[in-house]
Design a protein around this nucleic acid. Sequence first.
DNA 1: CTTAATTTCGACCGGTAGTCGAAATTTGTC
DNA 2: GACAAATTTCGACTACCGGTCGAAATTAAG
Lengths: 210, 210
Amino acid sequence: MKQEKQDKKELIFDALEELMVTVPYAEISVEAIAKKAGIGKGSIYYYFKSKDEILYEVIERSYRRITRDYFETIRNLPEMSAIEKIKRLFISTVKKEFSKTERNMLTELHILDDRDIHYKMKTIAIQEISPILTELLKEGVDEGSIRTQTPRESAEIIVAVMTLFLDETIFTDSPESVLNKLKILSNVLETCLCTEKGSFDFLFEPRTFS
Amino acid sequence: MKQEKQDKKELIFDALEELMVTVPYAEISVEAIAKKAGIGKGSIYYYFKSKDEILYEVIERSYRRITRDYFETIRNLPEMSAIEKIKRLFISTVKKEFSKTERNMLTELHILDDRDIHYKMKTIAIQEISPILTELLKEGVDEGSIRTQTPRESAEIIVAVMTLFLDETIFTDSPESVLNKLKILSNVLETCLCTEKGSFDFLFEPRTFS
DNA sequence: CTTAATTTCGACCGGTAGTCGAAATTTGTC
DNA sequence: GACAAATTTCGACTACCGGTCGAAATTAAG
């Protein structure tokens, strides 16, 4: 009953996701989605209130997948120190490793043009990744390698800043500027978390993201 | 010749801006804009490629106005120290003082619902305000109250972070969390700019933003 | 088997962004 | 001033889209 309804929704999600690989959302008609999903246009509105609702839920689904991947990846590295794990988290975020694992992902090139989606994705990303980092910060506090009394708040700020950094639409910088900013950032992180000097130097070491 | 063309565009900008005070952009038809501007619909497309182009340029115009205001306000306070000026900049940004000066402003309540606009505004805001802060940082460096080798990059990071902070759609926090974050932030700023301890305490002092 | 409830459908509606060719206006030239 | 060329204006028209709706099909219940 409830499951079948969810399955149908999933079918519609898949259709939209697939179309979005080649066509921007704004140019995809509800009829096209229905056709791709192999159902009638009217049925779409039986499951969703509006076209935008489909989009929003598709994005949410994608990000939940990404988050789940993050969690699993990091959980499966128990021999590492918290800071080492954080390093891994940053690197995989920057490199957008997830786009390899998750094939039908919204983060694919074409989509990035769409401002509306871009914004929503960022919001969700921040909301989803912060809890992971919060956990890692707490781990670090327990280990003694990190010191903060407000891990959640620190995590949210850090994720927000990191995300902003990746937004090339705002900062279209020279490589030199990027390097300068990464140096500032590593400094900020050290201060923010009272870690040992050099803990976040990997951010601006050239080989990190190659 | 060229000037008259710009005047006509300005007329269309005014029309859209005025309509946006009461109706969200998505619900404003090109015909309505034309009517408000007192011209034919077809003429709109003589001056603009698309409806969105009008919007984008309107937003740009608004922000240039705001920026000009910021510049002037701060320039007209020569007796202050750089840090004092920065304080003023932060406070006026947070309080959105500009919405009083600029009446027909896009920043008005109604608009903020629109995600697309919201995103664009933020982008432009960051691009526009950063140069001002950069100037102030350089001033501070000359004064000796601030130390940084990369004022431009520092400014951009700071503005980006501050802007993010104001985005209640992402962080709907408890007052306590907000306070914690502001404390982190002031700490980050001090570190980032090597200022005297307590320089940015005003950020979390209760009376600052009342 | 019959009836009720759920699910599917595509024709249809109101409304939109953008086009187009003709008309009006301005500019340039003698 | 007259004529032609170039620029600017216009609103009817096109093509299409999101969302509605009532009827039809399918499934579940008694």
